[in-house]
Design a protein around this nucleic acid. Sequence first.
DNA 1: GCAAAAGTTGACACAAATGTCAGATTGTAG
DNA 2: CTACAATCTGACATTTGTGTCAACTTTTGC
Lengths: 220, 220
Amino acid sequence: MSKAVNVELELPSHKGEKSTGRIRKKNEELIINAAKEEFADKGYHGATIDSIARRAGLPRPNVHYYFDNKLQLYAEILSIIIDLWDDALNDLDPAEEPAVALREYIERKMAFSRRYPLDSRIFAKEILSGAPRLETYFQRGYRVWFERKTRVFHEWTEQGKMDAVDPAHLMFLIWSATQHYADFETQINAAMGVSELDDKAFARATETVVTVILKGIGVS
Amino acid sequence: MSKAVNVELELPSHKGEKSTGRIRKKNEELIINAAKEEFADKGYHGATIDSIARRAGLPRPNVHYYFDNKLQLYAEILSIIIDLWDDALNDLDPAEEPAVALREYIERKMAFSRRYPLDSRIFAKEILSGAPRLETYFQRGYRVWFERKTRVFHEWTEQGKMDAVDPAHLMFLIWSATQHYADFETQINAAMGVSELDDKAFARATETVVTVILKGIGVS
DNA sequence: GCAAAAGTTGACACAAATGTCAGATTGTAG
DNA sequence: CTACAATCTGACATTTGTGTCAACTTTTGC
């Protein structure tokens, strides 16, 4: 509670960055990527600036030159992640056929888990901690935003295109199933006896999720 | 890597505890419960012994009297969690009807998420970090253990009692969907616009998960 | 090419957390 | 009720991490 800083409050930034030099750009990127690994691995508290600096190949004070402090760097990263997700996962279109739209949506979420596992894990850890640094994000209209996301299920149900399944919980089911492949990768790999899922294995995972969920809500 | 201590190596303990006094028992429990909250909230690194001591209502050196160091305390808790899960979630019985057995299994997992959210979150955070303190757990026969868990799906499929769905990924789907309600509680509550899911809302969640998954694999 | 701006870095001061220890207190077996 | 074991706790030493600063170097606009 004490230091519950919020991304939106602290950082409307990163879109209207003063686009100074290209050195700045290069180094900020270097630092952010290093920080993502570090935060995903160790969490906010466990990550150290020193370790981030080492990963980025820079001396520690140099990191402070670009980012005032750890919290700001972390908040910046959360902000980037949220924007990334918002941009890439546009709404389901009620006009489309559920079988097509939903399959595409799930495939996209799975592709995300595969391409951006670090981002997914950082976000997951934040929520697991009770999202103290995303307070406003989860208050400012999140309920409404979510309601809009799930309204499409309602419409499809009314049009008889799918079973009458609780829209909110269906959405949670989709999110959990797909994000699981990023967040619990360690456990999955151990269970499958591999060091990572190759393309074929991942496609098989995607197909399973799509098949079960589509059939589960009465969509062919 | 450096300090990748493993639960099994460090702590075959906690079952064969030297059951000294009842004072010990009481205080150890006090500390463990306080530590669970702290670890679930802040993660391994973010948790401080001082904070744990305060939650437990004890002076800090007293915590050290019962647990040598933070890692040992954490490992002890991981060990407890794993035992708890193993004990409570026995295998699916191939002889039973899938509709009955699976429904019961999912309901039990959901009940777990509701009753032991802290435990679920601690475990989730550990895996998210790459499970550095569960290395042996995920190596020593985990693959085999998991294979045994999923074999039942194979059998049901062969008996024509359910669709031919990839057993491993079906298991992941069930695990992710059910654990989601413990791990992502913050997000779920925000989405639903409540401070917590009451019994009725949680029952609705359970019913949705059961319904979709059972139907999704062709089980009535 | 040369000032001003941007970037780099070693050294420092400070804060937070860990784990230890010795002496005091409390509980318990006989 | 006494001696021994178990428990408690204030004080300390050490480590680790943060953030600042001033001096130095490089880049850039003109």
